[in-house]
Simulated assay, not measured.
Amino acid sequence: MQDEIVVEIHQIREEYAKSFNYNLDAIFADLQKQQVESGWEIVKLSPKRNLTKRWSRRSKNSQ
C-alpha cells in the first residue's frame, strides 16, 4: 500500500532536484535564498550536552 501524500512529496522532491540538474550546491544555494526571502528569523540552538553524551558512541568509549 502506498501513501498518496508520500508519493506526492517524492514527486515534488524529484522535480525540484531535476530543476537544478541534481546539483546539491545549487539546491543548497536556492534553499538558503528561500530562507532569507521568507523573512523568518533564523535561530541557532546549541546542542544539548546530555542528549549528545547519551546517544554518542564517543561518550561510551571514553567512559
Rank of each mutant, 00 (worst) to 15 (best):
M1L: 07
M1N: 13
M1S: 13
M1H: 08
Q2I: 10
Q2C: 04
Q2D: 10
D3N: 15
E4S: 10
I5N: 10
I5G: 02
I5Q: 11
I5D: 09
V6W: 03
V6F: 05
V6E: 15
E8L: 12
E8Q: 12
E8F: 06
I9T: 04
H10T: 06
H10Y: 08
H10M: 11
I12Y: 07
I12W: 06
R13Y: 10
R13C: 06
R13D: 09
R13A: 12
E14F: 11
E14H: 14
E14M: 10
Y16D: 00
A17I: 02
A17E: 09
K18N: 12
K18G: 04
S19R: 13
F20M: 05
N21I: 01
Y22Q: 05
Y22K: 06
Y22L: 07
N23M: 01
L24V: 08
L24Q: 14
L24G: 02
D25A: 09
D25M: 07
A26C: 02
A26G: 00
A26F: 04
I27Q: 11
I27K: 01
F28E: 15
F28G: 00
D30F: 00
L31N: 07
Q32P: 02
K33W: 01
Q34F: 02
Q35L: 15
Q35D: 08
V36G: 04
V36H: 08
V36W: 09
S38I: 00
S38N: 03
G39M: 04
G39H: 00
W40F: 12
W40R: 14
E41L: 08
E41F: 04
I42L: 09
I42Y: 15
V43W: 03
V43Y: 03
K44Y: 13
K44A: 09
K44N: 12
L45V: 00
S46P: 11
S46A: 12
S46E: 14
S46D: 14
P47E: 00
P47W: 01
P47M: 01
P47A: 05
K48S: 05
K48P: 03
K48M: 07
N50C: 04
N50W: 00
N50G: 08
L51Q: 08
L51F: 10
L51E: 15
K53V: 06
K53R: 10
K53M: 03
R54K: 15
W55R: 07
S56F: 02
S56T: 01
S56W: 01
R57I: 04
R58T: 06
R58L: 13
S59D: 09
S59P: 04
K60Q: 14
N61C: 05
S62F: 02
S62K: 14
S62R: 15
S62G: 03
Q63F: 05
Q63I: 05
Q63K: 12
Q63S: 11
